[in-house]
Amino acid sequence: NCAAIPKELLESELFGFEKGAFTGAVERKLGKFEQANGGTIFLDEIGDMPLDLQAKILRVLQEKEVTRTGGNQSLTVDTRIVAATNQNLEERVRQKEFREDLYYRLNVVPIDLVPLRERSEDIPLLVEYFLTKSCSEMEIPVKQCTQEALRLLTDYSWPGNVRELENTIKRAVILSSDPMLTAGDFSGLRRSSTTASRSEELSLEGLVEMKLRSSLDNLDKMETGDLYGLVLKEIERPLIRFVLEKTRGNQVKAADILGINRNTLRKKIQDLDIDVKKDL
């Protein structure tokens, strides 16, 4: 887990170290890449990896070589890398927080795991699995959920995805003394669902208005300026970028969808500083 290990330790954990490389290095230690030679290494939360360490990961991918901390000998490794992140790496590349060359090296067979709220049909199976797991860990008979409780769990939006679901099930198992979990055992979800559904019921206009109200609370204290132009620019940029993404950069098709002239679209791309090749 690249986010859980301190930056100072992550390098030696991945590449190993030689005896005497630093205080406490009383013997040689093989890194994860050497240990996984001929197999697969899973780098979780790679989006949080420091930039200087990203360069060394790139070397492993390109040269298939590693050098232990404190060593001067290059070691050949044949290791397949599987990486995961909950961050938008394309956005981090644009912000210069993730190496572009490493991103394209890793992005060979991407698998986008959609949020749990978009695959609600998986929730009953996951609930059953986590109930069995939690009860097994506590060494108690396996509990079940009533249909009402299962409907509540299925309808909830789960912003924390599977981890949130697992913790919710575990908490209910711990706090309830009954073999059957009811909707009352998940009362916290009922309040959250009400708030979430209120936002989901809003139209696009309603969502924009809600965002404007929260962003412009101190409007009466603002000086005169081009507020209209600023807000319009903030809306236009993501709209045009989204349409260009969906049309794979085809500006003629994008202009038709937007209902504007192609020359107008080209000018807006320049004015709004939208780098078509970089963004798509």
Rank of each mutant, 00 (worst) to 15 (best):
R59Y: 02
V66A: 01
R68E: 07
T69G: 03
G70I: 09
G70Q: 09
G71I: 08
Q73E: 15
V77D: 03
V77Y: 04
Q87I: 00
V93H: 10
R94A: 15
Q95D: 12
Q95E: 14
K96E: 12
F98R: 03
F98T: 02
L106H: 02
V109Q: 07
P110R: 09
I111E: 10
P115S: 13
R119C: 07
R119N: 08
I123H: 03
I123S: 04
P124T: 11
L125H: 09
V127L: 04
E128N: 11
Y129F: 14
S134D: 05
S134W: 11
C135R: 11
S136C: 10
E139H: 10
P141L: 09
K143C: 04
K143F: 05
Q144R: 14
Q144I: 15
L152E: 04
L152G: 02
L153P: 01
T154W: 03
D155N: 14
S157F: 07
S157Q: 10
P159T: 05
R163G: 06
R163F: 05
E164S: 03
L165A: 00
N167M: 13
N167I: 02
T168K: 00
T168V: 07
T168C: 06
R171V: 06
A172K: 01
V173I: 12
I174R: 05
L175F: 14
S176A: 15
P179Y: 04
P179A: 13
